[in-house]
Design a protein around this nucleic acid. Structure first.
Lengths: 344, 344
DNA sequence: CTGAAAGCGCTTACAG
DNA sequence: CTGAAAGCGCTTACAG
């Protein structure tokens, strides 16, 4: 642990004042410094391996260069890591540091408020409040003390910018891929949980059929737990119906895994006998199934990046009014589980 | 954005000096403050909702209360999220805040050094350097400027405490579970990548057989890509051998997924005809397969927590010499893919 | 072009 | 038991 070198050491070694050192190192606008002096200061700073203390700078400038990311139970939500990664990389681009606090999924309002406060105590320049499984959220009042954006939900007062995945649009595309392959009897293994994804994906399924002029048949929909076993049951139900569907859109990839199994047991080949589309592009299922599962990706990385980018423009300038509530595209990830409908 | 209330505001409102406010709020040892005064200060601080500025405190006390966590490509390593979670929760317990910087997997030494410097600039009290896929690592010299611990590798100079999963011990248990069920012909779908897990798990397999007095037959080992398709190929190879194994230990859960498929295609039931054990307890595979996969868990959460705990004792006291290099236990996760060997 | 000085919001010997 | 003052390491009007 070597003695820390401060701006005074640099100033002394270069034979100038700390003011000058600060100016040349920060390239303060509207400040002319003799070229020779500037070079000398820079050389000395480099030689001494001087690194400004961000705490001190932050105290003085009242901007810490830190963004707080408040996440819900990162471990239980499959792709939360990609939100962090997207936020992280965007933060690097903006020269911002990410401070992460993870709330348990079941944390009460008080605990969550404490987390926000802890972030505020550290003088973060902005906060990203990331939730899952919510349409609308009532963020702690403290959030109003700093630029903030929401990931995964909109706020009830519509005061905060937010970004959510376009679940309905994703489902529309999923079914669209099946329609495009000529399928007309398209089953749906629906989810049962009370989350936005359940509703959004269902809406997308219904809408896709409606827009294609197809009837909504209850016989084509089987709900189940959003796990492999739920998909297995729902898939089995659909595939043993008299007029069985030629294609199945699954609420998520885990259910698709179960549908694969049900199909295999019934002697049906994928995609020759039945086409399958999932949702989530969940690693490692989607790529590991055989054949590879065509599915819909979730824009987690992009949401994380968008949140930081939005905060960054907010930080050096005016915030757009009213705040944007963005629904981000869920892309189709094409693999090998969709084939043209058998023409007979 | 309401005006920030500082310690001076509290002092003024309570009619005392900032010194006193600081003492009562921090409960400074060896400082007696009149009970009445103390209560008044506390009441006023609470009423004003005063929160000390951690930047200012950090500047003064030269301890930021922040721990830096440097991770390698969090997105590509399945369970990195659990390292973060473990570190996060331990940090909360110690009243520490976690600052996360994520290096790309392929970042060069310079980039990684910059990341360490960025953390140091922020005056973190300690650094956790988390890597994957390494036995030994040569950490940037800058790491010596602060208490640091390694996750996932030991440092070449043996100067830093480190924690790694006991891959060999895990494999030993995996094969032990099979031996315990009476299996004597136990196949192994080995990995091929040049990573510690490949070697450790292989050593564990060999050792388990040796200790059981069983011969190491090359016919029982099939190497392959550590993905579902690699497991499918390796599994197919093993299960079509003349004297096929009655059980298979898989390098990881993804390979086990492929082995399941190979078994199903060959008309072999799991676990009745062939028992299977995986490694990684990778979500969502292990629990989604049918039957549920018995496998070996990786102590990611525990490693993250241990790293923070170790740093914490380091921070308020002396570091143990020499630094501990801990190998953490990989637990058996029992599901339904192991059955007693058929007694025929 | 350069520097002396104030001040960001705290904590902490030290004095009374 | 309480407070005045110095100082942590910077940045930034302001003066020269």
């Amino acid at each position: 642990m070597t003695k820390h070198v401060g701006i005074r050491d640099v100033a002394h070694a270069a034979g100038v004042s700390v003011t000058t050192v600060s100016h040349v190192l920060n390239e303060t606008p509207h400040t002319r410094v003799n070229a020779e002096t500037r070079d000398r200061v820079k050389a000395v700073a480099a030689e001494l391996n001087y690194r400004p203390n961000r705490l001190a700078r932050g105290l003085r400038t009242k901007t810490s260069g830190m963004i707080g990311l408040l996440t819900e139970e990162i471990a239980t939500t499959p792709h939360a890591g990609r939100i962090i990664l997207g936020a992280q990389e965007a933060a690097s681009r903006h020269n911002l540091t990410l401070v992460i606090i993870n709330s348990p999924l079941l944390a009460d309002a008080d605990a969550r408020r404490d987390d926000v406060r802890a972030l505020l105590d550290r003088q973060v320049d902005g906060i990203i409040y990331a939730t899952v499984f919510h349409d609308v959220v009532h963020p702690p009042r403290e959030l109003a003390n700093v630029p903030a954006v929401l990931i995964g939900a909109t706020d009830d007062a519509h005061r905060l910018p937010s970004v959510t995945p376009d679940e309905e649009g994703g489902a529309l595309k999923a079914v669209g891929a099946l329609l495009g392959a000529g399928h007309r009897r398209i089953g749906f293994t629906a989810g049962v949980e009370n989350v936005p994804a359940t509703r959004g994906r269902r809406r997308g399924y219904d809408r896709a059929l409606r827009e294609a002029g197809l009837p909504l048949e209850e016989d084509l929909v089987a709900a189940g737990a959003s796990e492999a076993w739920g998909g297995y049951e729902a898939g089995h139900t659909l595939l043993t119906r008299p007029d069985r569907p030629t294609a199945i859109f699954c609420y998520n990839d885990r259910m698709a895994m179960g549908v694969y199994r049900a199909a295999t047991e019934l002697g049906l080949r994928i995609p020759e006998d039945v086409s399958v589309v999932g949702f989530d592009n969940q690693d490692p299922i989607a790529a590991s199934l055989f054949p590879g599962l065509t599915t819909i990706g979730l824009p987690h990385y992009e949401m994380g990046a968008w949140a930081v980018d939005t905060l960054a423009v907010h930080l050096d300038g005016e915030a757009p009014t009213p705040p944007e509530e963005l629904r981000l595209d869920c892309p189709v990830v094409v693999r090998s589980s969709v084939a043209p409908v058998a023409s007979g």
